[in-house]
């Protein structure tokens, strides 16, 4: 793995994570590079989503969880007591497995985050809505119905709206937790194109069950099994020349 230190946005050192007394992640050490797409793959329950949710402290919302080790975001440990999870989440956007727009208008979905940080000016908000929706390649489909409920959109449109909503916060990183697993192939293709487009400006970390998707969209891939990081390398290497037997078994479909 050839990287230069200043290119690393996330640095994980010996991370252990527990749900109560159950250990979900064991000794994870890995770096994530800036403006890259990194895919996390592995069978269900391997800890990949848990890891993703550690990066923006979403696991804080679950009672009885515990983190050990260090997770450095731009060199600062985000689990330090003086770091506010609210601040962290404003800089690290997240897109969930199931599209989850608010039961509000399309416009208000996008402006929800920016309003929280104090953007009140109508013109600014309108500009932000247009920019974000254009970035998420949804603008042409919804520009005339911005005041309609987001719940009237199709699943694929809802997911792109959720991406636009995350982008409206102008985050540095976009975490995606199986963003296409609830979508049809056409919507999936659109989201993948979008990821291709977004990686120019954002660091993207994507959890996926779909190995073809990992191969298509990512530059780096990490394979997880039973809470451990088994192999982490360039995507091309993982899929053509895996070094660990378990990785090979998984990607060739022998288990998982």
């Amino acid at each position: 793995m050839v990287t230069t230190a200043n290119n690393i946005i996330f640095e994980l050192k010996q991370v252990n994570f527990f749900y109560g007394s159950t250990q979900a992640l064991t000794d994870i050490s890995m770096d994530f590079e800036k403006n890259r797409v990194t895919a996390l793959i592995g069978p269900s329950g391997c800890g990949k989503s848990t890891l993703l949710r550690l990066l923006n402290r979403m696991n804080d919302l679950i009672d009885g969880t515990r983190v050990e080790g260090e997770i450095l975001f731009e060199g600062r440990n985000i689990y330090n007591a003086d770091n506010d999870p609210v601040e962290i989440r404003r800089r690290i956007g997240m897109v969930f497995q199931k599209p989850n727009p608010f039961p509000k208008s399309i416009f208000n979905n996008i402006t929800y985050g920016p309003r929280l940080t104090g953007t009140r000016n109508r013109a600014d908000l309108e500009l932000l809505v247009e920019q974000s929706l254009k970035q998420a390649v949804l603008w042409d489909e919804v520009k005339d119905i911005l005041n309609k409920s987001a719940m009237t959109l199709s699943g694929g449109q809802q997911q792109r709206l959720c991406i636009a909503r995350a982008l409206a916060m102008k985050p540095d990183v976009l975490l995606m937790d199986e963003p296409t697993s609830a979508l049809d192939p056409i919507s999936t293709a659109k989201i993948e194109d979008l990821i291709e487009e977004l990686k120019k400006n954002y660091t993207i970390i994507i959890v996926t069950h779909n190995m073809q998707q990992a191969a298509r969209v990512s530059e780096m891939t990490g394979f997880f099994y039973l809470g451990r990081l088994i192999e982490y390398a360039l995507t091309t290497d993982i899929f053509t020349n895996p070094q660990v037997k378990q990785t090979e078994d998984y990607i060739t479909g022998r288990f998982g």
Binding site: N56, M58, L61, V86, E87, R89, R90, G93, M94, F96, K98, N100, P101, F102, P103, K104, Y112, G113, L116, T117, C162, R165, A166, M169
Partner: peptide
Amino acid sequence: VPNEFKEASYALGATKYETIVKVIIPA
């Protein structure tokens, strides 16, 4: 109120109070 709404709100950097007032109660 589906948990997804709350998660979406927190992930956008809302506090608990903001999530209750702006998402949970309206929903």
